[in-house]
């Protein structure tokens, strides 16, 4: 059951990432590129967790670093948006 849920989340992350990729293409706003990358990393995080579940916990920490990176990307997107904005 948990694997099924996690797999579904993985798929939804990829779809959300694709949407943001398209927004990026449409608006040429880097902001969406950050978001697309972030959601794909979220998906990757799920995948890595799944693959590494049976190995030692050291790797699980590594997997959570991917999650950290995905949220850092969102932070970067917000910072970038606010640095770029005043010039407009």
């Amino acid at each position: 059951m948990n694997d099924f849920l996690s797999g579904t989340v993985f798929g939804l992350c990829l779809v959300a990432g694709l949407f943001f990729l398209r927004f990026w293409r449409k608006t040429r706003d880097r902001f969406f590129a950050f978001f697309a990358a972030s959601f794909w990393l979220m998906g990757l995080h799920r995948l890595v967790l799944m693959l590494m579940r049976l190995t030692d916990s050291e790797h699980v920490v590594a997997a959570y670093l991917i999650r950290l990176l995905s949220f850092v990307l969102i932070l970067l997107a917000i910072i970038d948006k606010n640095r770029a904005a005043p010039r407009r």
């Binding site: 059951m1 948990n2 849920l5 996690s6 579904t8 989340v9 939804l12 992350c13 779809v15 959300a16 949407f19 927004f23």
Partner: peptide, 24 residues
């Protein structure tokens, strides 16, 4: 709480993807 964690992530992403499909 694993199941609840997965469920919360699933619901979140489902809402987002629904919004993206419905209203973008």
């Amino acid at each position: 709480l694993t199941t609840f964690r997965h469920l919360s992530a699933l619901v979140s992403l489902a809402l987002l993807v629904f919004g993206l499909i419905w209203d973008s």
